[in-house]
Design a protein around this nucleic acid. Sequence first.
DNA 1: CATCATGTAACACGATAAGTTACATGAAAC
DNA 2: GTTTCATGTAACTTATCGTGTTACATGATG
Lengths: 152, 152
Amino acid sequence: MKRDSRLSITLHALLHMAERQIITSDELAACLSTNPVVVRRTMAGLREAGLVRSEKGHGGGWSLARDLATVSLADVHEALGEAAFFAIGNRTESPGCLVEQAVNAAMDGALRDAEALLLERLRGISLADLSEDFQRRMALRHQNMKESNYGG
Amino acid sequence: MKRDSRLSITLHALLHMAERQIITSDELAACLSTNPVVVRRTMAGLREAGLVRSEKGHGGGWSLARDLATVSLADVHEALGEAAFFAIGNRTESPGCLVEQAVNAAMDGALRDAEALLLERLRGISLADLSEDFQRRMALRHQNMKESNYGG
DNA sequence: CATCATGTAACACGATAAGTTACATGAAAC
DNA sequence: GTTTCATGTAACTTATCGTGTTACATGATG
């Protein structure tokens, strides 16, 4: 487990959900090459945040609760519990040592700036943007397949 | 172990080193509230990068090999092996799924920008800057102690 | 009521930073 | 040259956390 990929996994799941209207945890797990329990566990926060709905029983599964255009990647990150962005950080939060205080102040400043930029970027991308990009890639693939058919 | 604090630890150690000319792993470990072996292990990369020197035997220990002003926090990070900055990331690096490709592209873009900013910030701070900040804090503390003596 | 799907707890696994012990290597002091 | 001090490094342990997996409860549909 190198990095926390829950945001990545969740976005992947949400886009598949958008393509299917409703989709079960098992189907999503197959799409994501993971386990249905992981899907449910990860998606729990999104349900609480009102981003998705879940239905039990026959014909049940997951569906989107909001328009793709109104949900940013930052919203998804927040719904997941605002996991830490950075793998690096200070050793002690409020050290008595003045040297360490100076180090922490510098590190915190740099990390704060980087985090602000990252959040700004995530806020600027909506699920609709991702879906559009996906559609573009799909159109491109079909075009390439056609060309290769004509060529061969 | 929540986060990788090697950069923080190392900067702390380097500033103490600057105050002392030469200092042993045991003394550093005491300053940092850690283990001398951790100090040696962490500092190994800095020695290879030519940022510090180490001497064995009587009167031995660690000393700075370069002027504080010529070493940036990015240099230290690099000497430590360029540990990953981010705790989040994509699940698969080169997925076949077009949905995941779209997700990855968006995430990579945001992370790349944030990493670039972070590196720029780290490049912009030298060990001399940290040392200055430390001196400022120390002067301030002495001033406050004086004031509280006069007051009481 | 049988089936299907989510909800959740409980446990195992893998990776990694950090702490610790043990011992080898080398330099200075006596 | 032997003792002492300090680094160099391997090996093992611990703690944490994302992820995978099993098992079972809950609830909805037919």
